[in-house]
């Protein structure tokens, strides 16, 4: 069966054994996939911002810190073991070439940095990444293998 589950913006989904997780057109946002090969448990998280600054914000998947934390918690509920996870990330682009050091120009970069730091702190292996540059990416994750494919406009797909 080829079930496709869409992950929205500031959203996270988990599938087991089969199916595909997909998140469309990541710009400066980052798609983070976690795969536990032992039990074929796969999560895909789509974050927008590096850090949660308002504890009462209910959309926890909007931020890298709270989003990753909650994803890990839910995966462990399904029997996932953190030390087995394989993580891949995509996105963090700079969509517009704007002058100066405004947040708009640097947010992709900040997102990448924040995600990497959190993964190091959580001791999760980041095996592959396709980040930065100036174009949007659609990210697909196959639940059975954890294989990620990246689709971009006007370029060849990347498998990682």
């Amino acid at each position: 069966m080829n079930k496709e589950v869409t992950v929205g913006i500031a959203d996270m989904k988990i599938v087991r054994q089969e199916g595909t997780l997909i998140t469309y057109a990541l710009g400066s946002c980052i798609g983070i996939s976690f795969y536990d090969p032992m039990i074929k448990l796969t999560a895909l998280l789509h974050i927008m911002l590096p850090k949660c600054s308002n504890p009462s914000d209910t959309q926890i998947f909007k931020f890298a810190d709270t989003g990753i934390q909650e994803t890990l918690r839910r995966m462990s509920v399904f029997g996932g073991v953190k030390s087995r996870y394989i993580c891949k990330i995509a996105g963090g682009a700079r969509m517009f070439e704007v002058l100066g050091s405004s947040s708009l120009a640097n947010i992709g970069e900040k997102n990448i940095e924040s995600v990497r730091n959190i993964l190091i702190k959580e001791q999760i292996r980041l095996t592959r990444q396709d980040v930065g540059s100036n174009y949007a990416r659609t990210m697909r994750v196959a639940a059975e293998t954890g294989t990620v494919s990246i689709h971009t406009y006007g370029k060849q797909d990347i498998i990682m």
Binding site: Y24, A25, G27, M48, M95, L104, A136, R137, Y153
Partner: peptide, 13 residues
């Protein structure tokens, strides 16, 4: 580029 990536810019801002 892709519409989604472009719209994410104001959403993030």
């Amino acid at each position: 580029n892709m519409l989604g990536g472009i719209l994410s810019v104001p959403m993030i801002e």
